[in-house]
């Protein structure tokens, strides 16, 4: 297999970003709209109910941003091999590069969006300190996690086309199952295992450690996140390995 140059990756990422905002009036600002709208709704409706949660808007926003990144990322990766069918059939670069660049452009987009939201968070009571830098390794780990889930779904979606539909239907369920607008302490003890089963819960914990509580991420949850990411990454690698050579005849 030919080595793929960094330049190829760069151009594919650049192309994805260009495509996303081609012929839109507000371009990049559209991607800020979804979290902003959710934030507004939750603050307006739930801030009275969840008065026990200190700095509620900041609590929601810190979780919401990363959830939107997760759902956008996985949904785009679901379809990435279908979208690039013609290229996969005729260009000898590794098929995973389409997934990497798709998520890469999503990550660039997310980081650009993070800048205005950090300003908003500052007004909501975010403390500016070097501790905030912990968000960078967390973001990278989370991106690998999204890549793994997305590659599993994307590879299977080549063979079973309704995986993508199923996944986008499951997304809202996952949203409500994750403690984004509520606190996991409010879940009755009998059902708390449901919360623990959700991989996103553990990520939300370390994200909130940094963005909400202003402290370094807890070791306990960090290790869980690293282990989960490693497991999903290996599964993704295996599924991708087994299926990739048959993409061509099924696309």
């Amino acid at each position: 297999m030919k080595a793929t140059s960094a330049s190829t990756y760069f151009h594919l990422i650049y192309k994805n970003i260009q495509l996303k905002y081609k012929q839109t009036m507000f371009g990049f600002f559209w991607s800020l709209l979804q979290p902003a709208l959710y934030l507004f709704i939750f603050v307006a409706i739930f801030s009275h109910i969840f008065q026990s949660i200190h700095k509620y808007p900041l609590y929601i926003l810190s979780g919401l941003l990363f959830f939107v990144y997760f759902s956008e990322g996985t949904n785009r990766l679901c379809l990435v091999f279908l979208k690039n069918a013609s290229m996969i059939k005729s260009i000898g670069i590794p098929k995973s590069s389409y997934a990497i660049t798709e998520l890469g452009s999503e990550m660039v987009n997310f980081m650009l969006g993070l800048v205005p939201f950090l300003v908003i968070m500052y007004f909501m009571g975010l403390e500016l300190s070097p501790t905030l830098l912990y968000i960078i390794p967390i973001l990278l780990l989370f991106t690998v996690f999204i890549y793994s889930i997305g590659t599993i779904l994307g590879s299977l979606n080549v063979f079973f086309r309704d995986i993508a539909i199923l996944w986008s239907t499951l997304n809202p369920a996952l949203f409500y199952l994750s403690p984004i607008a509520y606190s996991s302490d409010l879940v009755p003890a009998d059902f708390r295992y449901l919360v623990y089963c959700n991989p996103l819960f553990h990520f939300l914990q370390i994200i909130r450690d940094v963005l909400y509580l202003g402290q370094p991420p807890s070791l306990h949850y960090s290790l869980i996140c690293i282990a989960m990411t490693a497991i999903f990454f290996v599964i993704a690698l295996l599924i991708y390995r087994v299926t990739k050579n048959s993409f061509i005849s099924n696309l």
Binding site: K15, Q18, L19, K22, S86, M87, S90, I91, G92
Partner: peptide, 15 residues
């Protein structure tokens, strides 16, 4: 090997 095999592969109509 020049890897481009078929025409129209990778053409993005919006660009």
């Amino acid at each position: 090997v020049s890897p481009l095999l078929s025409l129209g592969a990778g053409v993005e109509l919006e660009l």
